[in-house]
Simulated assay, not measured.
Amino acid sequence: MPDAVVARARLRADCTRCAGLCCVAPAFAASADFAIDKPAGHACPNLRDDDRCGIHAQLRERGFPGCTVFDCFGAGQQTVQVTFGGAPHWRDSPEQAAAVFAAFGVQRLLHELLWYLTEALTLEAAAPLHRELAAAHERTAGLTAAGPGELAAVDAGALQAEVGALLLSVSELARAGARRRPSAGARREPASGGGRRVLHRRNADLVGADLRRGDLRGVSLRGALLIGADLRGADLSLTDLLGADLRGADVRGADLSGALFLTRRQVAGARGDAATRLPAGLEHPAHWEAA
């Protein structure tokens, strides 16, 4: 396997090689994330004829912070350039537009799974599962090169469940090592009723929770709702964050450098600062510095 940072660089959106698919294919509803309603398959009114966003530099100020955290993991350019060979444009071929948007949805799932599998293959603790991980990575990467028909036949739910179960096993192996380590200094337990036992529950509701300076090493926050949670100064080394909702979470001064399965979307949705530590290959969003 290539170096994870190099491999993940290929899972980055290149809007110059896409056709504004993220501004057309998904639906969104008027909310704190989007200023308007937009049905699936309809172009956002801010999308220009050159497939660029007309308010890109003011998305947050204009009520579209949800757009700033969206990440296709490179699925947009893969759909346009590989799945459909660069042509025709969805604007020019309305009869094919539905197929393009459907393929984009599958490609996005495949690319996100590749993000997680790439990381899993770098974890020493996951060595007993490397053969299975490599096979899953090869199969998933192969599907990204498929044509529209083959992509339409992909059972996305089954594939997601299969890879998800494998990643859960990886998480358990990696987090076991963190739980065996002695505590570094006097860290108090997270200020959330029930302590770590509450946190270890999958899909835990931790909206607005006070987790400041918490020792969250080796904790599973998989699928957790951490919207608006206070994670300032927390240690999230080997903390499983797969699918966790970090929108508005305060991670200023937090150590996320060893967190498991963290994505650009989660980082962009959180509130951090220069003292927030991130894994290699993830950058501090521009709005962090501005804030």
Rank of each mutant, 00 (worst) to 15 (best):
S183N: 05
R213V: 02
R188H: 12
L133W: 09
A97N: 03
R187N: 00
R8L: 10
G272M: 04
G269L: 02
A290H: 11
S220G: 15
I55W: 05
D273S: 08
R175Y: 03
C22R: 05
R232F: 05
R247W: 14
G248M: 08
T140Y: 11
A135F: 04
L123K: 06
R181G: 06
G76H: 01
P148L: 07
Q78N: 10
P45C: 06
D155I: 06
A158K: 14
D14L: 07
A43L: 08
V154P: 11
E189M: 03
A274C: 01
F70N: 00
D235T: 00
A184H: 12
T68E: 01
R52F: 12
E112A: 13
L167R: 04
P94I: 04
E124N: 10
T118V: 04
G63Y: 04
A176P: 06
P190E: 10
G149D: 14
L173H: 10
Q160V: 09
F261N: 05
G85N: 14
C18I: 07
D255I: 09
A249D: 04
A153D: 13
A274R: 15
L168P: 00
S192V: 15
W90T: 04
L256C: 02
F73Q: 00
L199P: 01
C22E: 01
D210F: 08
P148Q: 08
V170A: 05
A156L: 01
L167M: 10
A145P: 01
D51R: 15
A126K: 12
T118G: 10
L256W: 02
S237N: 11
G54N: 06
G41C: 07
G233L: 11
